[in-house]
């Protein structure tokens, strides 16, 4: 079950989701820990490429963590099964578009959690499409 986390430039979690949603709540603590511990790897790897998509940055048992860094230094982290990397690039690119729309909302405060339900629903749709 893939788990997504969006982390702000000052390392605050902005958005978290587990796909499919039915699994939300189980083991989430471990996954959060694993995801956030990969932030150091992201900081290292982002200098090796010109792309925003960093591919797999870290592994944890049989799972991998893929990352995407926006120009404003928000980090998207996705924990997923190793070997299922196909849709992830598209997932991140589309997620970036959604994220830009969500953060353009004047009533959204930077680095605060995104609580918009429409953003949440659209991310779920994306996950169903690509993951």
């Amino acid at each position: 079950m893939p788990t997504l986390a969006i982390v702000s430039p000052n390392d605050r979690p902005v958005f978290e989701a587990t796909f499919p949603q039915a699994f939300a709540g189980k083991h989430v603590v471990v996954e959060q820990l694993v995801l956030h511990s990969s932030l150091d790897m992201v900081d290292e790897k982002m200098w090796d490429t010109r792309d925003m998509y960093l591919r797999v940055v870290d592994r944890y048992h049989d799972q991998s963590i893929s990352a995407f860094v926006t120009p404003s230094n928000y980090r998207f982290l996705l924990l997923h099964d190793t070997g299922e990397e196909d849709g992830i690039k598209h997932f991140f690119t589309d997620l970036h578009d959604l994220f830009i729309k969500a953060t353009l909302n004047p009533l959204y405060v930077e680095s605060e959690p995104i609580r918009s339900t429409s953003f949440h629903d659209k991310v779920m749709l994306l996950a169903r499409k690509y993951l």
Partner: peptide
């Protein structure tokens, strides 16, 4: 254009 109302608003 970009706005979305959060709960407290």
């Amino acid at each position: 254009e970009f706005a979305e109302l959060p709960e407290e608003c």
